[in-house]
Each structure stands twice: as structure tokens, then as C-alpha cells.
Design a protein around this nucleic acid. Structure first.
Length: 487
RNA sequence: GGGCCGUUAGCUCAGCUGGUAGAGCAGGGGACUCUUAAUCCCAAGGUCGAAGGUUCGAGCCCUUCACGGCCCA
């Protein structure tokens, strides 16, 4: 990385001599700049407001004109110009204000005033220096262009780019909306272990860590699924968890090794029910963040309001490749031949299921820009899903795709302990065949099923990816505050 | 993991065919009583990502490495 802030050149002597202990510890009774702007909007040029305002924030601009100095002050709600006048303040106070540096944090009291040129301003009556900015500030006009610095020193990005701030505030509103939707539907929010003796609930490689006192390795969870369903067995009936999962895999525009996932489980419901609830959650979140259900992704305006079209996995792959893997038995040969004929490396696809997954992610996923449910997955790809009656080898499962990404995955939960044990064994076999994302056997989970899991529907929803959709971003790093970087 | 591109002042960027480093902004000093990227004057600011190599001479050419970006897997 560039040695951006490593060798600060000294700034004004006043800053080097500054005694932090003498600076105020608080600046109370603050007004928000946004509120000031709204309340004083109707002021005419050269007219003063009635009330005193008390605002604070960061200095982002300064224009001097002899006996008048203009300063741009910004807080999280907005920006306003400060007007300091030698004639009104006296020389001593005026010089203090005039010596402020870009980046400094200050508190100001005064009345609103609209300048001759029509700019709403705060006429400075009292000035409190709160904290210095000791390092040179990023370029005011171009902003911070270096993507690496924006991510490693996100505070600089947030300081200089109001859009970046708004994006993360939008993400927070989205998450609040999701919680509100589930809470209003009588779901219980729970917290399950991040450190797990055995990982499960998703096809993924885990991070491994070590507990010193217990002297044993533990896994960081790849999903919350198996714990949440244990809670449904316990009678909590409708549960959800919103938190970080960890997958020891590559980093890309849609993958961060730690990411935020929502999972919810609803007893006495099935795949159909949770598909509907997924649509509703997304629509409510879009309304909360954007005020509309139309968003623009990759230059296309898309409609998020349901019902989302549904297409079976076999038909979706057939539409793009001419091959329907679900009608060819479980023969990997035609799938492998097709991929190879297209010049695609299949050396890491050890099993029929991996080949199907490869076809889906390569030919289907990138084309699904508007929200779409892919349904009717093969049982080999779905070790925790309930079988679909009347269709051999197929389960009641969906994945929702949008913006060319998987955003959600849900199903009718498998509650037959014997079948579950057999699926785990089959996964173990696939693991031995070279699938390093295969599930490990979780006997304790099977035991929970032996006590009786009601018919249940459940869903995982990728929060970062939904945030990408609702904020119009094409990389996950722009919706994660501190994305994974090489150190 | 592979391919391509990038890394020069605190920030944003120039830098020709190889001849020893430039601007704007920020920061420092000064002028200026309604500015909006204010303007004007002065001074200061560099291990050119790192290490090797070629050369009389390397920011520039070659090799390796680090970090980042984009694409592919």
C-alpha cells in the first residue's frame, strides 16, 4: 500500500502544541444541521432567523475574504455554511475561527442568516474547538479515489463521501425493516453459537479455530440452520437469526469470507409459505430503503414486487444449454462432456451434483437479473430438504436469484431422522469422493429430529447481497464497512 | 489459482525516445469585509511500492516480490 498517512508533515504549530486535556469532553444540546436547514429554509437573503442554533461537526471547506470567513460544516444530517465576521466578533474571536483547518471538529452557536448570494448560513456567535484533524485531508474536489484506501481506512471514505455514508445508513434501515417484518409476524430473534464443534447447514469450507482451555478445535459457523431447527424442535416454532457466517473460500465481487445472513424457520409451514414470506421481506425492505420496489441493477430497472416467476432447475439449465440434467438419470458423463465442449474446466467437479451446480452457476445464475425462483432441486444438492412427493430425487427447495446472484435459499425442512442420517452418510461419501464442501455427519442433530421436528419451512437470505441490490452496488465491498483485505 | 492493468508529494494526477521530479488542492507565511473548488503573492514539501539487474546514466527497460483493480476459474 502507499504510505498514505505514515509520514505526516507537521501542520500548524498550534496543533503540535495543542493540549488534548484542555479540550471539551462534550458538546451537549446539539441541534442537527438537517433540522436547521429545514426550519430556516424560508429565510430571505440578508434576513436573520429568530432562534439560536447549536451545531457541531467537521469542517470541510473554508473561504476567507479578509474580515469575513465562510466555513462549510457537516454533520451526519447535512452540511451548512458558517459565516464569521470580524466586525461582529472582534479581532481575537475572529482570528480563532479563521485559523480553523479543514478536517477539524468544532461546535458553533449562532443564528441562521441567508447571505446576499442566497446561501443559508449560521452566523457564528460562539465557537468551540472540539478536536483537531492532524493529518492532511483527502482532496476536497476529487474525493478519495484509491479503492484500497477507501476500504482500509473506511473512515476517510465516510468523511469525504456523503453517498458512502448514505449507503451504510440505507443498509441499516434495510436490516431494521427485516427485523420489523419478522417481529411483527411473531418470530423470535435468537442467537446461536458462532463457535461450533461441528459445522453444517451449507455446502462450504469452514474456518477452524482452537479453544485453548478445552484443547479442541472448533469451527466458525458456515450457517445457523442446524441450531435454529433444534430450537423449532424445542417448541420456539418461529425463530430467526441475523448474524455473521464464515466461509473459507475465495473473495469476489459477491463473496466476502465473513458475511451477514438472515435465516428464519417457521413451524407448520412449507417451502411455498416461506417463498411468499421471502418476497414480502424483500418488498418491505425495498420500500423502507428506496420508497419503491423498483431498483436499478447493472443498468436495468427491475421490479422486486412479487410474485416472482418460478422455473425448475432442470428447465432453467435446459433453456441455456439444451441439456436437462434431471432427465438423464444421474449420469455425469453428458454434463461433463457439455462443459468440456464449451472449454470449461471440470477438474474440480468430482460428482454429478457438482456438475449440476456448475451448470447452474455458470449458465443460469448470471442471467437472472429480475428476481426469480429456481425450484425442484436434486436431492444430492440438498441434504437438509424434504423430498417432493411423486418426483424421485427431487426436493421441495428454492433458490431466489436477483441481479445475477443467489440471494436466498429455502426449503421444506427434512424431518425424517432416518432419511437425514442417510443423507449425511451420502454427503460423507461425496466428501470421500473429493467434494470438500460436503456436509459432515451431525449425529446430535439427527437425535434432535428423533424427538420430532414439526413440518417446517426455512430460508437463508444473504443480507449483503440484498444491500447491494437496494443500494445499486455491483460489489459486496461497497456494502461491507470493512471488507476482507490482505494484511 | 490464471491473464491483463496499476502503484510518482498528505490527496488528485502529469512526467516524451533512458539524461537525475512537475501541477492543482491540502498544509505553512502574507493580502483581501458576501465567498461557494473564492482569488492573488511567497516559501516549503519526493526512498518515484520493495529488492535485484541492464546501462556512463533508470520514474521510464528486464527479473522477482508485495499490495490493489478488472476479467477468468
Amino acid at each position: 500500500m502507499s504510505s498514505s498517512t505514515r509520514s505526516p508533515r507537521s501542520r500548524a504549530p498550534r496543533l503540535n502544541a495543542m493540549d488534548f486535556a484542555s479540550l471539551p469532553h462534550r458538546f451537549g444540546d446539539r441541534d442537527q444541521i438537517g433540522a436547521l436547514r429545514t426550519a430556516e429554509e424560508l429565510l430571505e437573503p440578508e434576513q436573520s432567523g429568530e432562534r439560536a442554533w447549536r451545531i457541531s461537526g467537521r469542517v470541510l471547506g473554508r473561504r476567507g475574504q479578509g474580515g469575513v470567513t465562510f466555513i462549510d460544516l457537516e454533520d451526519v444530517t447535512g452540511r451548512v455554511q458558517l459565516l464569521a465576521e470580524l466586525e461582529r466578533m472582534g479581532e481575537e474571536a475572529y482570528e480563532v475561527v479563521r485559523s480553523v483547518s479543514i478536517g477539524d471538529l468544532v461546535g458553533v452557536q449562532g443564528t441562521a442568516f441567508r447571505t446576499r448570494r442566497g446561501e443559508l448560513s449560521l452566523q457564528v456567535a460562539e465557537w468551540t474547538f472540539l478536536a483537531p484533524c492532524r493529518l492532511p485531508f483527502p482532496d476536497r474536489h476529487h474525493g478519495l479515489q484509491d479503492v484500497e484506501v477507501r476500504h482500509r481506512q473506511r473512515y476517510l471514505d465516510l468523511m469525504t463521501d456523503a453517498e458512502a455514508r448514505e449507503r451504510f445508513i440505507a443498509r441499516a434501515r434495510m436490516i431494521a425493516s427485516i427485523r420489523r417484518s419478522l417481529d411483527e409476524a411473531d418470530f423470535v430473534e435468537v442467537e446461536t453459537p458462532v463457535l461450533q464443534p461441528l459445522y453444517g447447514g451449507a455446502a462450504a469450507r469452514p474456518f477452524i479455530t482452537h479453544h485453548n482451555t478445552l484443547d479442541r478445535d472448533l469451527y466458525l459457523r458456515v450457517a445457523t440452520e442446524l441450531y435454529l431447527k433444534r430450537l423449532v424442535v424445542g417448541g420456539l416454532e418461529k425463530v430467526y437469526e441475523l448474524g455473521k457466517d464464515f466461509r473459507n473460500e475465495g473473495v469476489s465481487h459477491k463473496h466476502n469470507p465473513e458475511f451477514t445472513m438472515l435465516e428464519f424457520y417457521e413451524a407448520y409451514a412449507d417451502c411455498e409459505d416461506v417463498m411468499g414470506r421471502t418476497e414480502q421481506l424483500v418488498v418491505a425492505a425495498a420500500q423502507a430503503v428506496c420508497g419503491t420496489t423498483k431498483v436499478t441493477i447493472k443498468g436495468q430497472e427491475i421490479e422486486l414486487a412479487g410474485p416472482w416467476p418460478r422455473i425448475t432447475l432442470g428447465a432453467a439449465i435446459e433453456e441455456k444449454t439444451g441439456i436437462n440434467p434431471m432427465t438423464l438419470g444421474r449420469d455425469p458423463k453428458p454434463l461433463e462432456d457439455y462443459l468440456k465442449s464449451q472449454g470449461i474446466d471440470t477438474s474440480r467437479d468430482k460428482t454429478w451434483a457438482q456438475l449440476v451446480d456448475h451448470l447452474l452457476s455458470h449458465y443460469v445464475e448470471p442471467t437472472l437479473i429480475s428476481p426469480t425462483f429456481i425450484i425442484d432441486y436434486p436431492v444430492e444438492l440438498s441434504p437438509l430438504s424434504r423430498r417432493k412427493p411423486g418426483e424421485d430425487g427431487v426436493v421441495e427447495r428454492f433458490e431466489a436469484f436477483c441481479g445475477g446472484m443467489e440471494i436466498s435459499n429455502g426449503f421444506s425442512e427434512l424431518n425424517d431422522p432416518d432419511d437425514q442420517r442417510a443423507r449425511f452418510e451420502e454427503q460423507a461419501e461425496m466428501g470421500r469422493a473429493g467434494d470438500d464442501e460436503a456436509h459432515p455427519v451431525d449425529e446430535d442433530y439427527v437425535t434432535a429430529l428423533e424427538y420430532g421436528l414439526p413440518p417446517t419451512g426455512g430460508v437463508g437470505l444473504g443480507i449483503d447481497r440484498l444491500a447491494m441490490l437496494l443500494t445499486g452496488q455491483e460489489t459486496i465491498r461497497e456494502v461491507v464497512l470493512f471488507p476482507a483485505m490482505r494484511t
